[in-house]
Design a protein around this nucleic acid. Structure first.
Lengths: 116, 116
DNA sequence: CTCATACGCAACCAAAGGTTGCAGGAGGAT
DNA sequence: ATCCTCCTGCAACCTTTGGTTGCGTATGAG
């Protein structure tokens, strides 16, 4: 049985998604479609500049993708990359859950031994 | 259909689990059983003090639970709380995936309209 | 008793999230 | 063409957080 830790996970994706503000930005972009730093910032408790920095991070992680249109710059979610991120979350979760199961089995085995 | 954003998530749990070092620590504690700041630190690329701080964070989030034994202080994973964290990861992932699916369906509908 | 070991506390440093302030470019109104 | 507005980018600065080194202290081994 492979005990390899599931931390072959892309740390940049994780930390991109690890920030609560960025998670909410992704939520908003998914819920309302493409948006700009300004449009996002007035749905969030932070300033436009903070949002802009987060958009850079998300862009660099490939989770969003921005296009300039006139004086606006609108960003939209890269669906494939977000799907990848979701898969990695699931992977880490599954790994932990597997270990918890294993511990539980061992605990039960000890319990049985005591009852003999 | 409820469009409520899945950010009713406990931010403390998320950020506890959001840090890569803390994730590795949880991995180690799950893999090798209870451990001390020292025992963890020499399996990690950071100092004992850094590990100690992370243990405080994890403890405060309820993910681990430490007991003093002589001159050692050993920590072990709180399985129930970690299970909760895993559930929250899964919840956010599911929420995003649902939205991605919805977007995909809409895109296909538009595609069909064009083909008429 | 002495020595090694594990710990906690404090000072310090760099990076990240956040803020304010300002200069510049694109569009609409006069 | 001009003026005004709006959205953007850049720079300076503050605070929190992950990380380090250094030190004092307590506990177990010899």
């Amino acid at each position: 049985m492979s005990l390899a830790v599931a931390e072959d996970v892309d740390d940049e994706l994780w930390s991109a998604v690890g920030d609560p503000t960025r998670r909410r930005m992704l939520d908003l972009l998914l819920a309302s479609g493409p948006g700009t730093a300004t449009s996002l910032s007035d749905q969030l408790p932070v300033t436009r500049q903070a949002v802009a920095k987060h958009l850079q991070v998300l862009d660099h992680a490939g989770l969003v993708h921005g296009t300039t249109a006139g004086r606006e710059r609108r960003y939209q979610v890269d669906e494939a990359q977000l799907a990848r991120a979701v898969a990695q979350l699931a992977s880490v979760g599954a790994s932990w859950e597997a270990r918890l199961q294993r511990i539980k089995r061992i605990a039960e085995a000890i319990q049985r031994d005591r009852e003999v």
